[in-house]
């Protein structure tokens, strides 16, 4: 595709502190490629992140960014999207952010369906704090906070997202950057909340779920797989351990986005209204509201 953009436009001068070999590099690169392919320039996008290694991504990219708190990028992104729907809003966070501390926001974003792309760097471990088990760590996983092996069963994010009403759910693997870029682009194009669960080895602190481990288990969804078939999606959502499906597992393009249904937005975005009033206050418009107090 010919676009006016070059992926280099997204390069940042910030010093990168990711471990060499980290899957985050591939995610960063795939996101840049996806935006370039979709002709979305750095100033037209907003990348909101949480806390964790991968959440430093906006710093390593020339793009509007808001690096927030642990678990909270989704609501920050939702507020930004509602206030200025023109921004292409993308959330990048980790499995601890999205499925742990921010689990409530994850659930409600699924059913709320704002036009936000949610990329979860799911490495099944807490890397920034040097290796504690995460909501997606497998049963028996030995870490510093689970020295005898994790005794909680792992969360299946795809299944949860389906149950919570998400309208686009995909999984990809950081070891397949081209697949990842294509899936991310597809997710960005989707009108509504889109979840991209990225299997991303933590090369430093996760000695179990390595590139090799994933390579032996992942498979790409067949060409004739129909992601609009809810029953088929449910079946794939529970596939884990031995066989892990990659690709768009579920999509429903029939649901309106949250923003499309907010009636006051038809009068203009909060940003547009604020700018208008800033330029030209219109105090007369409030007089009728006083009637209700009489």
């Amino acid at each position: 595709m010919v676009t006016r953009l070059d992926a280099k436009m997204f390069d940042s001068e910030a010093e990168n502190t990711w471990c060499p070999g980290c899957g985050d590099f591939a995610i960063l690169r795939s996101l840049k490629m996806a935006l370039t392919d979709l002709d979305i320039a750095p100033h037209e996008a907003l990348v909101v992140s949480g806390i964790g290694c991968g959440s430093k991504l906006p710093d390593y990219m020339h793009v509007n960014g808001y690096m927030t708190m642990h678990g909270r990028p989704l609501p920050v992104a939702t507020g930004a999207k509602l206030a200025n729907p023109d921004l292409q809003v993308i959330v990048v966070d980790g499995d601890g952010d999205a499925y742990g501390i921010g689990g409530n926001h994850f659930l409600h974003s699924c059913r709320r369906n704002p036009n936000i792309t949610h990329i979860v760097e799911d490495n099944q471990i807490y890397g920034l704090t040097k290796g504690q088990y995460s909501p997606t760590s497998d049963l028996g996983f030995v870490t510093t906070t689970s020295p005898d092996g994790a005794i909680e069963r792992s969360l299946l994010p795809v299944a949860v997202a389906i149950a919570a009403g998400a309208t686009f759910i995909a999984r990809t693997f950081a070891g397949d950057p081209r697949h990842m870029a294509a899936v991310i682009a597809e997710a960005i194009k989707h009108q509504g909340y889109s979840l991209v669960d990225v299997l991303q080895p933590c090369v430093t602190f996760n000695r179990v779920n390595t590139y090799d481990w994933y390579r032996q288990r992942v498979y790409k969804l067949e060409d004739d797989y129909d992601p609009t078939d809810l029953d088929a999606a449910r079946a794939r959502a529970y596939e884990w351990a031995d066989r892990i499906p990659l690709g768009v597992i579920y999509r429903n393009d029939e649901v309106q986005t949250y923003e499309e249904q907010v009636l006051p937005l038809k009068a203009g975005s909060p940003l547009a209204s604020t700018l208008k009033l800033q330029a030209e206050p219109a105090p007369g418009q409030y007089e009728p509201l006083k009637e209700q107090f009489l």
Partner: peptide
């Protein structure tokens, strides 16, 4: 994958560098 880069390559090999969790 044409986008498979040096970091990804190293990522594979890093998995062999053994550490015991501490």
């Amino acid at each position: 994958d044409p986008y498979f880069d040096s970091n990804l390559f190293l990522g594979w090999v890093l998995a062999t560098v053994d550490v015991t969790g501490g």
